[in-house]
Amino acid sequence: MAPRAYWKGTLKLSLVSCPVVLYPATTAAEKTRFHMINRETGNRLKQQMVDSETGDVVESDQKGRGYELRKGKYVEIEPEELEAVQIESNHTIDIESFVPSDEIDQRYLDHPYYIAPDGKAAIDAFAVIRDAMKDQERVALAKIVLTNREHVMAIEPLGKGLLGTTLRYPYELRDEDQFFDDIKSPKITRDMVELAGHILHTKAAHFDPSKFKDQYETALKALVKRKASGKTIELPEPEERPSNVVSLMDALKQSLRGRGGGRPSAKSHGRRTTGRGRAAKKVHRSTARQRKAG
């Protein structure tokens, strides 16, 4: 049984329209989460809003929204004023254009949603729109209102349904130049590039998310289980950092001879996860310092 729909409305392509429902394509329900507690009583803590200047607790009827004009100077915005600029949802996903999928910059992709027909009467029109998009190999760009804000959504076929992904606006992206301008352009020999290419070739694989293992999450669950059963938490020994300095060419050659080269890609995945394994060990260190709060 499908979960409750997040949004209901109409998918519209010119004069063709059909009722659809949206479901979030992601979930954080399985993530391990912690609450802040009182170490003395074991009770959960709750937050209070405090005036930054007076230190007084502010009651709910005194809370408002303000935009900071300059440091410490705010203009208060009333709820009814916010309502005046909110976009009224017409519950329509109106397709405006179709673009080649490879033209969409991956940085713009935000939240994914599954789009399905709403009821038997919608199936025919839904299938026509979906299959036409498959034939054209293009992604639809449409506008949709979610939580009182207008979003641009990229829509593409996914199995029997559609995948709609809200896109970020240009003002939400940082310019890469401010991060990359200071990167130098050293002179690298062709031999180095070719050696690195060989290493890449030995690690060639296909995208398979079923192989993704969240070792941090696994370590957290194990930690909580041990604590709940009254067992002590043993802290791992600090890792020794290698002190020898290896030249880039030597590192490439060693990677090709030993760790990186000569093995199928399936083994490479196992090797890659060792870095995450080290990260998982850090979990024990950091969580042990806060073990009573967990």
Rank of each mutant, 00 (worst) to 15 (best):
V58N: 04
V128D: 00
K73S: 00
Q86V: 11
P79H: 08
T92R: 11
V50R: 12
I37Y: 07
P100S: 09
G72E: 00
N90E: 14
E96K: 11
E68T: 09
A127M: 03
Y114K: 03
Y74N: 08
E81D: 14
Y113W: 02
K63A: 14
Y114L: 12
E78R: 12
A125W: 00
T92W: 02
L82S: 06
L82F: 12
L82K: 01
V58L: 05
I87T: 15
R44D: 08
I104S: 03
D110N: 12
I115P: 02
H111F: 07
A121Y: 05
G55L: 05
S52W: 12
G72M: 06
D56T: 11
Y114M: 06
R44C: 08
Q106W: 08
R107M: 11
P112H: 00
I123R: 10
K73D: 06
L45A: 09
H91D: 15
E59L: 11
Y114H: 10
P100G: 05
G66N: 12
T92I: 13
Y113N: 02
Y113H: 06
F126H: 01
I93V: 10
S101C: 09
M36S: 14
I37N: 02
V50G: 09
T32N: 03
E88A: 15
Q86G: 09
E81S: 11
E68H: 10
P79L: 01
T41E: 08
N90Y: 04
G72F: 01
R44N: 05
R70L: 05
E68N: 10
S60Y: 15
R33K: 06
G55W: 11
R107I: 06
V58I: 15
E83W: 01
D105C: 07
G64P: 01
G72Y: 04
D51N: 15
